[in-house]
């Protein structure tokens, strides 16, 4: 419940405040958002399977975002930032898909 409320509140804040993304953050923000989405889907799946743990979620959320940003940062330093960004997004998308499939099976049995 608090998760849904928090998400709605965050979106409203973003729409109302219209903040400018700092330049140094611009390459990392989209990747970080996708990584966080992966953590959210994983958490939802764990909830349905009865193994959700608040502590695990918080740590995995932050770790996901940090690792994704770190990979992109490293790629930029190595001159393969664009390719690594694509790779990270692809991997996260695959995970989101598999989590979404598990959620679907849990909720609808299909």
């Amino acid at each position: 419940m608090i998760a849904v409320l928090g998400l709605v509140l965050g979106i409203l804040l973003g729409v109302v405040l219209e903040p400018d993304v700092p330049v140094w953050l611009q390459p990392y923000l989209p990747i970080a958002v996708v990584a966080a989405l992966d953590a959210v889907f994983g958490a939802l799946r764990a909830t349905l399977e009865g193994i959700f743990d608040d502590r695990v979620f918080v740590i995995s959320f932050l770790a996901n975002v940090l690792v994704a940003a770190l990979i992109v940062f490293l790629g930029d330093q190595l001159g393969v930032g664009a390719q690594l960004s694509t790779g990270v997004v692809v991997v996260l998308a695959v995970r989101i898909f598999s989590n979404a499939a598990a959620i679907r099976r849990s909720l609808f049995g299909a």
Binding site: A3, L5, L12, G14, V15, V21, V58, F61
Partner: peptide, 11 residues
């Protein structure tokens, strides 16, 4: 965390 996520998403 969800507030941050929503904020980042919208931004």
């Amino acid at each position: 965390l969800f507030v941050v996520l929503g904020f980042a998403l919208a931004t």
